[in-house]
Design a protein around this nucleic acid. Sequence first.
DNA 1: CATGAATGAGACTTCATTCAT
DNA 2: GATGAATGAAGTCTCATTCAT
Lengths: 215, 215, 215, 215
Amino acid sequence: MNKKREIESSVKDESLIEKRREQMIRGAVTLFKEKGFHRTTTREIAKAAGFSIGTLYEYIRTKEDVLYLVCDSIYDEVHSRLDRLDIEKGSISVLVAAIEHYYTLIDEMQDEFVVMYQESKSLPKDALNYVLNKELQMVAIFERLLTQCVDNEEIQMTPKEVVMAAHHLFVQGQMWAFRRWALDDFTIQEFIDIQTKFLLQGMAGENISIQEAKS
Amino acid sequence: MNKKREIESSVKDESLIEKRREQMIRGAVTLFKEKGFHRTTTREIAKAAGFSIGTLYEYIRTKEDVLYLVCDSIYDEVHSRLDRLDIEKGSISVLVAAIEHYYTLIDEMQDEFVVMYQESKSLPKDALNYVLNKELQMVAIFERLLTQCVDNEEIQMTPKEVVMAAHHLFVQGQMWAFRRWALDDFTIQEFIDIQTKFLLQGMAGENISIQEAKS
Amino acid sequence: MNKKREIESSVKDESLIEKRREQMIRGAVTLFKEKGFHRTTTREIAKAAGFSIGTLYEYIRTKEDVLYLVCDSIYDEVHSRLDRLDIEKGSISVLVAAIEHYYTLIDEMQDEFVVMYQESKSLPKDALNYVLNKELQMVAIFERLLTQCVDNEEIQMTPKEVVMAAHHLFVQGQMWAFRRWALDDFTIQEFIDIQTKFLLQGMAGENISIQEAKS
Amino acid sequence: MNKKREIESSVKDESLIEKRREQMIRGAVTLFKEKGFHRTTTREIAKAAGFSIGTLYEYIRTKEDVLYLVCDSIYDEVHSRLDRLDIEKGSISVLVAAIEHYYTLIDEMQDEFVVMYQESKSLPKDALNYVLNKELQMVAIFERLLTQCVDNEEIQMTPKEVVMAAHHLFVQGQMWAFRRWALDDFTIQEFIDIQTKFLLQGMAGENISIQEAKS
DNA sequence: CATGAATGAGACTTCATTCAT
DNA sequence: GATGAATGAAGTCTCATTCAT
């Protein structure tokens, strides 16, 4: 499995560590959103967190640790809010609810999503792998939901199509966070409705042959 | 309109400028892909381009200029290769061909696409605006194609759905560049086929009501 | 008025700032004297001050700040040593004492004077204005002294002549600092005596008409 | 003696050298006045002179050569305009005329004077010596004039006082070029008149004892 | 545990000078 | 003789990280 990476801290008191890291993450997200990881200095992070640069380094070892903590914490929150979707008995209506739930989540955590996707490339290799793996786990939730619909015979898809569809709807969610500059005519509800409509039709349609369309 | 930003050069010979910038862009894309804009030094760019740091600065004024040139050149290439799609008489089969053409293009220019989307946020504000505007122009090509299909009555969509659908398929294309790490089971042709199928069904399906699905 | 420009420092301890800037100024004066502002590097300044380049930049923001601090500190010292001359009841004997005091001061601070006058032109505009203004305040001390002598009827001068005379004796002082290469036959006392003699005669003499002399 | 330093040129045609250097000096003076020697680039000098950087270096070897040529040419012009003052039979009235002539000259060549005095410190050692020596020759003109007046018994001065007085009036002239920012209430004629008056009185006065004044 | 002053590697950029054309 | 593209040493400044208090 993909074990959580431990970030070393010279402080012993675990609850203090948690508290300080919380402060640090909150400050860092705002800064990263605003100026990106590279243009944000450790001093600024410390200041935004409400303590000194010296204290910051009591709780991390490198600046990249901060980025890792930020990404990890975002994923954790997303995960915990998506977990209830990971149920036994999926169906189209569950899927639709899941999408609404997920897209709403993205709308609420827009800044965090943008930061995570813009900056995670700056993580050290192993941290990046850890984070990408977490993302796959999230995609897998949708894969399972879709597979259950296929098993239900509510939709017809090959396994590969299921994988693709899961990524597909996942990425459309990111689009809401990333392309707000181009989608400012849409409300989140409109976005959800249209995307859901596309998706359902895309899955349920009576197999128009691509060959036919190409002709 | 959105005029091309002129990057100052202290060299006068226009054809030399073009040649050197070509070298520079080629080197920079590779480096940016590998380490990102911020971790790439100007010296490395110069070296990769095959000339000295002093020469580099004969053709640009700041490091950000390199990024701008890179993004601009990528857009230009994409534009020129997409231009033939911007025709008078669109139809479903033209649309399908366009998608195939576009996704193939992304496959071929994967590195460039990743660099452009990962790093353009580091552009100075006005350069960023210029680049985002160019992107909208590309989305608009697909909007026109879709609108023509609507006019043809080949598909039924509201204008807003057209906008969304254009972004939608545009973003799915980016997905191919960005999520190769997760899609390594798919060939580009599979990707195109599945995406096209989703799309066509999504548009052509007999309007499954979302409300119905939600129930 | 002409408020002192605050030079930003990222260090908080005010007394430390003062101490470090003191070191820095001392080192810089020597270097500027020797090689001028432009030929002196920030690294050399840091080294001469006894700390690292990083530390230097904890106490200033730009190299020009160093020059400003140097000029400001010199003016401050000169001012404080000239202040006692700014008295209520001036007279010729006070004026003579003042000149001796001032020229002695210049002799003792020769290096500083030369640096200040050679390099202040490299200050940013507002800093230059501040410094020139400070110089005018010093000239004004002599103007007041002269005006009091005029009021006393010890000397006869028009207000414009007073202004000119103040600049005149001020500049003669600078001459001692700047033209030592040409005046190495003179001791400071000889210089003071001769200058004072010229000055007193220049003011007290029975108005030889220039027209007469020109004839 | 102080032989003129030859500046090497790879061009043979002497009259061309002279012409090009003329252009170069004219451009350089303006630039040095505006931004100082160090902040002026060789490219700028070439451009202001009306030819390319390559051509500039056909006529000099280093940037400092330009400064030397500038200073030398200024001195030459001043010299040639002051030469007629170097006569056999001096007198007070000749002296007064000489001062007027000299101060007028400074007024007309203000920019050149400022450049020369501000920047000559940046000359290489031997060039600086050459230039300082030229200055001494100019002071010597006034020394001779004064000595002749002493010989005439028009004025009474010790030889040392003569030296000092020559420097004195020389420096007052520089004051007109350098302190215009503080003397903008004065016209050149007022300046000349007041300075001349001070000077004549300073020399002619009936030896007020300094000791007496100090008491 | 908290602080913040000190450090120095390393980044970007400039510009005097050269030399092939 | 003239040109201007190429060079790279050297300069200013930043910032992640350490460590004494």
